[in-house]
Design a binder for these strands. Structure first.
Lengths: 211, 211
DNA sequence: GTCTATATATAGATAGAC
DNA sequence: GTCTATCTATATATAGAC
């Protein structure tokens, strides 16, 4: 096939297909061949749009960060409400694409959406009255909790084979039933942890204001 | 070479070398060929000790879980002290081997050390008076926070090139200096988050006891 | 901007000699 | 229990025709 009238591919089409592939079968399933097949083109055609596979992966990762809502920081509510809403949106975006979490947990690098997110969180906290050092730590610890929440289901990690636990793990007698309640357990743990974290931070903020 | 008098390899020697390789260059660097070279044997020799590469990887991952101290749960101090000490030991073990975190965050599976850990944490919380449902959530949310903390450095994720931030990210003017203080930032964030979490959980525990 | 053909590297795993 | 030889599959990427 020669050059088509209108291009078959675009960076966006490629990124969308690549993300779908990663979501379905994991990062290691993202090969240029498979991606090209999915897009009904030949492998080398992709190199007209991305110089290397790494450049493509970067775009895929940042597209996930682009799904995170940052609007709550503009409206300047209190820091606690903004942080809660942001955390939920952030987790939802990551949990929809768990296989990209290990990559994006390496930090923003030069990816615009990731940098925009860091900028918004830090700006909100400083504006609310947190000292810059503390604001940095809060940004970090929130990312720790959220990426950890999206990296893997807690409930689904326990095999459903009841006999596995019986003899050796006295307290795990009901662990084989965790997978059934996967969503409730995982979301309950996230919400409990989020509120506990915010309560703990609020205690520190009160102390700060009194001094 | 024929069968040697004393075996050149053992499961333990292989696991230790494999972990060193993963620590140095990441999970994808763990190939049977490279591992064999590192051990001064030929590739296929490894298959006398592990049936598949997956079986080997499982052993590597569980060896990291074996580094986590669980002694604090036996002495039955208050749950808060035990949880704090355990969290620090857990994070230290994982942070020493960040490349295995995405695998072990998938849950315990059938790995004995991982199951032992889950059993100890859950048992401690229930014994301290937490309802079983709450204890499950606390085990989950602690794992979220700890794996997230060990998955990647927050500080090291920001490029040191000052010009990157200047125009587009008004609040990140000092972000290029984060990498310098990497350890202080990452450990400070972990400690702050850990104490905030424990404070928030303690609030809930008090409420529980009053009712 | 897409194609076919291909270069080059590397992977996990098996067969069978010793 | 280790070896050599090899099978089979798959990867990223380039050259050059159209």
């Amino acid at each position: 096939m020669a050059r088509p009238r209108t291009p078959l591919l675009s960076r966006e089409r490629i990124v969308v297909a690549a993300l779908a592939l990663v979501d379905a079968d994991g990062l290691e399933a993202l090969s240029t061949r498979r991606l090209a097949t999915e897009l009904s083109v030949s492998g080398p055609s992709l190199y007209n749009h991305f110089a290397t596979k790494d450049e493509l992966l970067d775009a895929v990762v940042d597209s996930v960060m682009g799904e995170v809502d940052l609007g709550m920081f503009a409206d300047a509510l209190d820091w606690r409400t903004a942080l809660r809403d942001w955390a939920r949106s952030y987790r939802a975006a990551l949990a929809a694409h768990p296989h990209v979490v290990p990559v994006l947990a390496q930090g923003p690098g030069r990816r615009p959406n990731a940098l925009r997110l860091a900028d918004a969180v830090f700006g909100c906290l400083v504006q609310a009255g947190w000292p810059r050092g503390q604001a940095t730590r809060i940004g970090a610890l929130m990312r720790y909790f959220i990426t950890g929440s999206a990296l893997g289901s807690f409930a689904a990690g326990f095999p459903e084979d009841e006999r596995l636990y019986a003899d050796d793990y006295p307290h795990l007698g009901e662990a084989h039933r965790l997978a059934e309640h996967r969503r409730a357990v995982d979301e309950g743990a996230f919400e409990t942890g989020l509120e506990a974290l915010l309560d703990g931070l609020a205690l520190r903020f009160e102390r700060l204001e009194r001094s």
